[in-house]
Amino acid sequence: MNGYLVSEVVDPANPSRMTLQQGKQLSGFGEYRDDGGVVGGCWVYSGSFTEAGNMMARRDNSDPDGAGMYLNWTFAWPANRRIIYNRASCDLDGKPWDASRKLLEWDGAKWTGYDVPDISPTAKPRDVGPFILNAEGVGRLFARQLLRDGPFPSHYEPFESPVANLVAPKVRGNPVARVFEDDWKQLADIGSADFPYAATTYRLTEHFHYWTKNNHVNSVLQPESFVEISVELAEEKGIAKGDWVRVWSKRGGLFAKAVVTKRIKPMLCDGRIVHVVGVPIHWGFVGAARKGFPANVLTPFVGDANMETPEFKAFMVNIEASTGPVA
């Protein structure tokens, strides 16, 4: 992945085999070529394993002037650069915006400082913009055509929401997010009385996703699934701390213990009280912890308009006191 210089000679007897003669690992992606002379699987990693050795195995934890950069500790892509766009730490003439927090500086001939410059080391300050991932060389306040849902961000409600979009009442969810036909039917209506509470999912400090329920220590620390609700919602629904509750969405339901907490408070949104139901994600039916329900029995099958990351953080549920699951 670092990039390897090959001779351009192919073994005529066996064209599937490249003749590797006198190869050298490259020192950086600047040496990549478009004539086939380089074998390099992942250019951003170039410089990580050079003729000088495995840069990723370096263990020098020195940090000149306490800048926090640790340039000799392992390797950072690209090019061992620790802060990207670091040319922007200086003004137009190459002086640090804040001298007490210098990262780079133009010394009249080149960029020097605590980090590897994110620009040609001899590029004059006014000649090249700092955001060299962009064709403009500048940061984009206007994203051109690069995101599907707009060159500026705009407020859109989650697909399941307690209230309509105040800025654009006719728009449901993100107007360009992909929803498969059958999944529309499994989304609660906006402001639905059947699913009046705004749920969100999250992690606990004692658990890592669905792994540590296989770990005895972590399963002792957090043995059992629960949901968190406010004191106000608990009173309204007749739920006491430690009671079993049932929580359900339009897609499925779960049983869990109720943690009644002041850490969650109802919010007033456009005249409507919104209660939050918090659902930690970590439980299932294998491992050392008690059997429980994962949060995804509830969550909607819709993702981000650009990346398709699922909308786990905002959806609607109902909740009631319960006697718990019948095994």
Binding site: T205, N215, V217
Partner: peptide
Amino acid sequence: LCPKGAALRDIVKSETR
């Protein structure tokens, strides 16, 4: 290390490996 990292040995040695 955090509570997860401090218990790393027990994930290596988990009964459900």
